[in-house]
C-alpha cells in the first residue's frame, strides 16, 4: 500500500502547482480572452528574482514579496502587449503572440540565470505537515493545495458574485461593447494580468525546490497547466483544480514504477490528447454570418 501511497503523495505538491497554474490560465482566458503560453514563464521570472535576492543576502520574507511583485510585473508586460496592440485580434492571434513571447522569455531567462544549470532554491516552507510511517505530506504541498483551493473558490465567487467580475466577463466576450458601456477596459485587464502573474510566481516558488529549477523547465510547466485548464474546458475552475491535482498524482504514481519513471513528464500530453478527443464528439461551427 505504502509503495503506491508514497509516490502519490510526492505528486501532490506538483499537482497543487499545476492546479494553481491551470486556474490562472482559465482566469486569464475567461477575463481577458487570452490563452497565455507565457503563464509559467512570468512566474519563473518572479521565482528567480526571489532566488537572486536571497543569494544577495536578503531575508526570505521580503525576497518572496519582491519576487511576487516581479512576477506581476512580468505578466503586466505581456498584458500590455496583448491589450494595447492586440485588443481587436482574435484568440488565435493572441495565443500566437504569447507563444512567440515565450521564446523571448526563455532565451532571456536562461541567459540571465546562467543557462541550464539548476539554481538552488530555498525551501520557503520547510518540514512535513504529516508523517505516517514512510508516507509524508510536506508543508509545501499542503500550501500549494490550499492555495489552489482558495484560488478556485475566490475566482468562482469573484466571477459570479461581484459587479467587477461581471464587467470583466463582458470585457472578454465583447471588448468593444464593454468599452462603450463605460467599463475601464484596459485598467481591469491589466489588473487581471498582474494578479495571475503574482499568484503564478508564488506557486512556482513552492514547486521549484522539487524540480530541476532552471528557467526553461519552470516555463514549460505551462504544459501541465494548460492540460488542467483543458480538463476544465477553459471554463470550470473546479474541474481544473481536480484535473491539476490528478495529473500531479498520476505523475507521482508513474515515478514509482520502474520503466515508466523516465516517461512521466509525457503524461500531460496524453491527458491533453484524450481531453481534446473527448470534447469534440460533436461538430461545431465558427461564428455565424
Amino acid at each position: 500500500m505504502n509503495s503506491l501511497l508514497t509516490p502519490a503523495m510526492a505528486g501532490l505538491s506538483a499537482g497543487g502547482a499545476y492546479a494553481i497554474l491551470g486556474v490562472c490560465a482559465i482566469f486569464t482566458y475567461r477575463l481577458v480572452a487570452v490563452v497565455n503560453f507565457t503563464g509559467a514563464a512570468v512566474g519563473a521570472c518572479g521565482a528567480f528574482i526571489m532566488v537572486a535576492l536571497v543569494e544577495m543576502g536578503m531575508p526570505l520574507f521580503p525576497a518572496v514579496v519582491l519576487g511576487i511583485a516581479a512576477g506581476a510585473l512580468a505578466a503586466l508586460f505581456v498584458g500590455f502587449i496583448t491589450t494595447i496592440w492586440f485588443s481587436g485580434a482574435n484568440g488565435s492571434v493572441k495565443a500566437a503572440v504569447t507563444a512567440a513571447l515565450l521564446v523571448g522569455f526563455i532565451a532571456l531567462g536562461l541567459r540571465l540565470t546562467g543557462g541550464q544549470h539548476p539554481k538552488r532554491f530555498p525551501d520557503i516552507l520547510q518540514g512535513a505537515w504529516l508523517r505516517l510511517a514512510d508516507v509524508q505530506i510536506t508543508n509545501a504541498s499542503i500550501a500549494a493545495i490550499g492555495l489552489a483551493i482558495v484560488l478556485t473558490i475566490a475566482a468562482e465567487q469573484f466571477l459570479n458574485r461581484t459587479r467587477t467580475g461581471l464587467e470583466l466577463r463582458a470585457l472578454s466576450e465583447r471588448p468593444m461593447a464593454a468599452e462603450l458601456l463605460g467599463i475601464r477596459v484596459r485598467l481591469l485587464a491589466l489588473i487581471v494580468w498582474a494578479i495571475a502573474g503574482a499568484v503564478t510566481a508564488f506557486a512556482l516558488m513552492l514547486i521549484a525546490p522539487l524540480r530541476s529549477p532552471d528557467f526553461a523547465s519552470l516555463s514549460l510547466l505551462i504544459v501541465p497547466a494548460l492540460a488542467a485548464a483543458l480538463i476544465g474546458a477553459f471554463k470550470s475552475f473546479r474541474a481544473a483544480l481536480f484535473g491539476g491535482l490528478a495529473i500531479g498524482i498520476i505523475e507521482g504514481l508513474a515515478s514509482g514504477l520502474v520503466g515508466l519513471n523516465q516517461y512521466r513528464a509525457a503524461i500531460p500530453f496524453i491527458v491533453i490528447l484524450l481531453v481534446l478527443l473527448w470534447s469534440q464528439r460533436e461538430a461545431r461551427w465558427d461564428e455565424s454570418r
Partner: peptide, 20 residues
C-alpha cells in the same frame, strides 16, 4: 484533436507533444 475544434487547441496539443 484539431479536426472539429477550432482555435488554440492545436497550439496546446502541439506544445504538449513537443515536451513529451
Amino acid at each position: 484533436p484539431a479536426l472539429r475544434l477550432r482555435g488554440i487547441n492545436l497550439a496546446i496539443v502541439t506544445l504538449g507533444f513537443a515536451s513529451a
